[in-house]
């Protein structure tokens, strides 16, 4: 199998190839969002962009941090931080499945030689007030992509809907390179010397140290305090926006410009912070039964609050734009 390994893409080539493929399909290439989050879906590039009527095609990588999934860099398949390649097609073209298959061909999967199945797997995130219908795409028994038709997000019914493709890059790359541990993935190969740099060299220390922090060091009391601070600020921003809308409706004391410049995007960052801190506390075993349900509901309230306000802000902006 070493022959296959030499020909297969390095981790970074896999990334280039996927990005190039989707850019050719008209996707905007975005950079990873620089706030910690558990999945690419939580990036504003998905969570906020799928709301409202405006078409949007985007492809981005998203390092996805799940404190509870860390295994100190010891488990060959589990990571605290893994990399998702996320594609949003809003609205989805009729041949979205065929395009997806082409993307597999592009990264070197000869579909004629493999076994491919779309198996039902519907996605739901109560914390984000979001759900969709779709499949896990199985390639020779390995789940390589989550394919979802988003139906609702932030408690808002979507119109149009979006297709979301999420490739788990470590898993996919390990498959392509035929290695049994993600740490054996070749990340880069020096074109001159042929020297290979592995995933282990680049990431294992990070996995170890973050696992240690997440499971052993993270100060529970301070983390709770952080969570509360972010939550308070996020909530104040949402309330502020809703206050403006009300004022505009009643006394016209607020102008459309005020609504348009209102910082909802930063409010969403704060919501993401809360979500990550919740995951951290969870990994730390610091959330009791009674608290758990309540905290999830609080974060959901933030996510839904931002989503609703954002939809309103977008429609207002759109209305103003058509007038001018």
């Amino acid at each position: 199998m070493s022959q296959a390994k030499d020909k297969s893409l390095t981790f970074q080539e896999l990334i280039f190839t996927l990005q190039k493929f989707w850019a050719k399909q008209g996707c905007v290439l975005q950079q990873p969002y620089d706030v910690e989050m558990g999945a690419g879906t939580m990036s504003p590039e998905t969570f906020l962009r799928v709301l409202g009527p405006k078409p949007y095609h985007v492809c981005y990588l998203q390092p996805s941090r799940r404190p509870a999934d860390g295994r100190f860099g010891e488990n060959p398949n589990r990571l605290f931080k893994h990399t998702q390649c996320q594609v949003i097609l809003k609205p989805p073209p009729d041949n979205v499945q065929e395009l997806y298959l082409e993307s597999l061909q592009a990264i070197g999967v000869d579909l004629r030689k493999h076994d491919l199945k779309f198996e039902e797997d519907n996605w739901e995130s109560p914390t984000l007030g979001a759900w969709g219908i779709g499949w896990q795409v199985m390639l020779d028994g390995l789940e390589v992509t989550q394919f979802t038709y988003f139906q609702q997000c932030g408690g808002v019914d979507l119109e149009p809907i979006s297709a979301e493709l999420t490739y788990g890059l470590e898993r996919l790359c390990a498959f392509l390179q035929d290695v049994d541990s993600v740490f054996d993935i070749v990340w880069a190969r020096d074109p001159k010397s042929g020297r290979e740099i592995t995933y282990r060299e680049i990431r294992q220390t990070e996995e170890l140290q973050f696992s240690v922090y997440n499971f052993e060091f993270a100060d529970v009391e301070k983390t709770w305090e952080h969570l509360k601070l972010y939550e308070t600020e996020c909530k104040a921003l949402i309330d502020g926006y809703n206050g403006l809308v009300k004022a505009l409706g009643e006394k016209k004391s607020a102008s459309r410009e005020e609504l348009k410049r209102y910082p909802l995007l930063p409010a969403f960052d704060l919501c993401l912070k809360c979500s990550h801190l919740f995951n951290l506390l969870d990994a730390r075993g610091a959330i009791s039964v009674t608290e758990r349900v309540g905290v999830i509901a609080r974060i959901r309230a933030l996510a839904v609050g931002v989503a609703k306000a954002y939809v309103d802000q977008q429609s207002d902006t759109a209305a103003a734009a058509t007038k001018s």
Binding site: M1, K113, L139, D140, F175, D178
Partner: peptide
């Protein structure tokens, strides 16, 4: 059970074995 007509090179078998091992 595969959704294709065979696995002449053993690639599919190899892939499935790999997943199961993991």
């Amino acid at each position: 059970v595969l959704n294709t007509d065979g696995d002449p090179d053993g690639l599919i078998r190899h892939g499935n074995e790999r997943v199961l091992r993991a």
